[in-house]
């Protein structure tokens, strides 16, 4: 089954759910099977947040990602918790401006992206999540980069479309690394 299991994990407020939704929408627009499952409840309000996204060519069984092919870790507790779960030959994308440790595994590809720092330096505060997604697209080709605009249009509500440009810049920044 050609399915990619993705786990976004970090603090509430880092746009974890949003970046997951962006990838899910992109998959939908390519007519793939997709599922998006957030953690919900008190952990969303400042604690840890994570979300499971599956893109697949076949119908999706369980929407829960326990063993990701791609992990995007935006804080240390999430990295500690999920690094051991990444599938062999999978990817771990680590926000190295917030996580100051080296990978413990050498059977997966670990990619360090100082996403929060880069976002701040480029006037894109709060968009470290999309910098990470840009880098994920670059390294994994999970979606075609040229399609980002149409997914952004869908995932950003009409009254916030003015934020689309900043999201586009953040994605391009990550993709260009």
């Amino acid at each position: 089954m050609a399915a990619t299991q993705i786990l976004f994990a970090g603090f509430g407020g880092q746009g974890i759910l949003f970046s997951g939704k962006f990838l899910a929408y992109e998959g939908l627009l390519e007519d793939r099977q997709v599922s998006w499952l957030p953690s919900y409840g008190p952990e969303m309000r400042g604690g840890t947040a994570n979300c499971s996204v599956i893109l697949s060519d076949d119908p999706i069984g369980s929407p829960i990602v326990s063993y990701p092919d791609i992990l995007i870790a935006m804080n240390l507790p999430s990295y500690d918790k999920y690094e051991p779960a990444v599938n062999n030959d999978g990817f771990a994308f680590v926000d190295s401006s917030l996580i100051h440790r080296e990978a413990k595994r050498d059977d997966i590809r670990t990619i360090y992206v100082p996403a929060t720092q880069l976002a701040d330096d480029n006037g894109l505060q709060g968009l470290a999540n999309m910098v990470m997604v840009g880098k994920v697209i670059k390294e994994t080709n999970i979606i075609p980069f040229e399609n980002i605009d149409r997914a952004l249009e869908k995932v950003i509500s009409a009254r916030h479309q003015n934020l689309a440009e900043a999201n586009r810049k953040a994605l391009a920044l990550g993709y260009g690394l």
Binding site: K21, A24, L28, Q33, V34, S35, W36, L37, P38, Y40, I60, P63, I64
Partner: peptide
């Protein structure tokens, strides 16, 4: 259940 309510699918 909570999963079916919270998850997004096409």
């Amino acid at each position: 259940d909570g999963t079916m309510g919270q998850m997004m699918e096409p």
